[in-house]
Design a protein around this nucleic acid. Sequence first.
DNA 1: CGGATGGTTGATAGCAATCAAGCACAGTGG
DNA 2: CCACTGTGCTTGATTGCTATCAACCATCCG
Lengths: 259, 259
Amino acid sequence: MRAEDFDEVRRLPLFRSMRPASFQAVMQGTYAQRFPPRLDLFRQGQGADFLHVVLEGSVELFADWQGASTTMAVVRPVGTFILAACIRDLPYLMSARTLEQTRILLVPAPGIRAVFREDAEFAVSIVEELAEAFRSMARHAKNLKLRNSRERIAGYLLEQSELAGRADRFVLQVEKRLVASYLGMTAENFSRALRSLAMDGVELKGQTVTITDRAALVRACPNDMLIDGPNPDATGGGLTLPRPALPRERRRKGRPGQG
Amino acid sequence: MRAEDFDEVRRLPLFRSMRPASFQAVMQGTYAQRFPPRLDLFRQGQGADFLHVVLEGSVELFADWQGASTTMAVVRPVGTFILAACIRDLPYLMSARTLEQTRILLVPAPGIRAVFREDAEFAVSIVEELAEAFRSMARHAKNLKLRNSRERIAGYLLEQSELAGRADRFVLQVEKRLVASYLGMTAENFSRALRSLAMDGVELKGQTVTITDRAALVRACPNDMLIDGPNPDATGGGLTLPRPALPRERRRKGRPGQG
DNA sequence: CGGATGGTTGATAGCAATCAAGCACAGTGG
DNA sequence: CCACTGTGCTTGATTGCTATCAACCATCCG
């Protein structure tokens, strides 16, 4: 591993608070590698050999079953993936491929597990990373189960706007077909539903999205901190009031969920 | 906290490998409590004060948004919940209620966070628990995105059969409406789809399910270790072969997913 | 200029939600 | 003992959202 990589990695949130000796130990066998676009990194079901850290570029995590395939997440710098599989030394639940040219740090899983026991600060970093991954996946599931496709798209656009610094105009970071899959719908339906959001203050031109009426868009999908993510100091909603204990749980029209 | 509770708790997977002094520290302010059926334990959005450990009974974790509600998980002894929220000291993403009379251990979150740094064995237990929670949620999301309702039900039945020791006859552990919600469909649809599985080797009588033709049921939903869970020494499938890189990703008929 | 890929649009089918009863069962109270 | 009532479950009719199938367009690229 190159010296400049070494320094860069040392500054990553996951590694910055650990003791120098621990860092050295974890770095044994660790290397950074550059991958071309659209390269399969690993398949679901494989054994977990390396913790992956995205340094540059982006990686798609996806899953498939019986010929169907779905995008589970897109990881960008400085995100990690398959931490859980490494910790438990179990097969990956997802497959991974690069979306663009991507530089990835590959940290041997055994080293992680060993140093975890010896360096409390590293353990804290690991567990916080993992906790955030859990919460992210829980939000993903909630999003799928509690919202219909139109709402999911509206929510996604609002979230992207937040990530772009609450900008009213931003460019989609990934191709639409991938967003569609991530949001749990077909590309065709995504296209249609996205267009239909013109009524709700969304303007489209290629990959560029312009929010012309934020209030209307929020009306189409009231944002909720507990689904859309923490987005610091969100003025919008984040409301989650205790509901008034209805006689028999009432269901909102338009969504499955339960009774 | 009673002495016999103390001993019982000490033997739990989460606490059994930690040092005595650490255990003492974590137990400060910890208490076991018995709750009546159908009692709300907390609401999503609340601050994470206690790690919860189910000692007896069962707890439903659910989430709601804009009047819609969905079951995210059912926790049984000796499972924990909201570990991630405790670790990160963030609001719960889900609400919780008891399903039956339930005894729960309430462990103050600050103690967890403090002792985590001091006792490596405890840290390992925590992180393994959390990793498993992540994987469970990831499987839940995969299940929702890659299978249609019929398949999800068939998969659920096969899983329940495994949990009952690969029994061909077993009793549903929770009411059907709740299973339906967990599987992401309405109670009505669950009822219909369940009945339609008679064609696939499933017999029904009240809460009792009899699998008369396991092969047929597996055909209705090929089980996959990476969705249905680890179910030790499963003979069935668990196959997840590298697909042969089709010219343009083909989609199976009947499921959303992506392209 | 093909050819491949991503995106869009239209027509159609189908799965799943909604609305509305009706049934079964348990607990309660007369 | 038996209405009475609440709850869970089922069934039927209907609506409608979403997938599927099939073109077609735009862009990029060798």
